[in-house]
Write a protein that binds this DNA or RNA. Structure first.
Lengths: 199, 199
DNA sequence: GGCAATCTTGCCCAATGGGCACATTCCTGT
DNA sequence: ACAGGAATGTGCCCATTGGGCAAGATTGCC
């Protein structure tokens, strides 16, 4: 939050490079372009790309890292006076409906066609989970032990990850665009039912 | 199971290459060797390495893919006459005590020192999860709906993943070698308590 | 306003990935 | 049993890549 101009600019270049890589991957496929072209499209040099990402795949996958800020902010607001589970549910729904879900879906679709993307996609998922976990532990401090929060977040993300897997195949050109989101909503309800009551 | 000689040989080469890469990574660090050396140590050519793994990292991480067979076999045996949760618990404990846990721990420790390994480690974790999930769905067919099994496996692996993260730091030279395993056992008890009763 | 830390970039070269071709080994249908 | 077909290991080759180094530019701190 208190990040200076320097860090914001660095983040901006990284994002610009990632978006360029993502766009190129969508229109030409992951093997249809070289890093040089990504850099050029974003207005940077090949060398600068290498300063931010170790490879094309990491850049492309990184665009799925989205919605964390929204979720974290919401989490702090709603956590007052509610149980941890309720707070988590609100935050998670917010994160996914913002941009997180559609981006993740697009990236997973790309990964389906280009297996070399997979490791980086799951890495991004893992980093998001760790980020949320950390914030959650902080928010719940004093009310819930860290190990409890960690387990809870693990269970939530593990189950959500299942749903993401299935979401890739959904391809409904004639349906309402919101169809996927609606289904996903029901799915989340199911997830939290199990979290509250056990299996 | 009915795999012919061809597939067994292929798997053997892949394993030999992976073990060589893993050993080299342990003793020299991930950047302390080149693929050429891995191939040479395993008795194959550089070109053959590339036929099996896209990069050093993938080969090293792949050694953590262990214990699945043991778990799957156990799962089929114990699944008769028990609830799904009991069967899962038995199978998971078996997988982790075989070689899975120690290998994963070593690999995660390497990844801590070499971040470029991380994506591939999480990829392996994910593939193991999918493998178990698939077998589990088959075993539970007719008794539990696939979506239920999928969620259950997701929750289990999500929580276990938390524990693995914490396990890396554990370094107890003077303690019994089994200390880590014992702690992990208690942890699993905790996990299944939450699975049965909810949070 | 100036100093220190950080970022971008060009230059450079070893390491890498993957296409192609060929020999060898395994599998499958007859 | 055996011949054709498929998959694997390998050498050769070259475009792509990662990352060290140093110079020039930009930002934050005093």
């Amino acid at each position: 939050m208190i990040e200076g101009l320097r860090e914001r600019k660095r983040a901006a270049t990284a994002r610009a490079l990632a978006e360029a890589a993502f766009d190129l991957a969508k229109e030409r496929g992951l093997d249809g372009f070289v890093i040089e072209e990504v850099a050029e499209m974003a207005g940077y040099s090949r060398r600068t790309f290498a300063n931010h990402y170790p490879c094309k795949e990491a850049a492309v996958a990184s665009v799925a890292y989205a919605g964390i800020e929204a979720a974290a902010d919401a989490l702090e607001e709603v956590s007052e006076g509610r149980g941890l589970l309720d707070a988590v549910e609100v935050a998670l729904r917010l994160q996914l409906t913002t941009t997180g879900l559609s981006r993740m879906r697009e990236v997973l679709t790309l990964a389906r066609a280009n297996p070399s993307l997979e490791p980086h996609v799951y890495h991004v998922q893992h980093r998001m989970r760790l980020e949320v976990e950390e914030r959650m532990v902080a928010v719940a401090a004093g009310r819930y032990p860290p190990s409890y929060v960690t387990l809870l977040v693990g269970a939530v993300y593990g189950m959500v990850s299942s749903a993401l897997e299935g979401l890739v195949d959904v391809r409904l050109p004639g349906e309402l665009p919101s169809r996927g989101a609606v289904e996903f909503d029901d799915f989340l309800t199911e997830v939290f039912k199990h979290l509250r009551n056990g299996f």
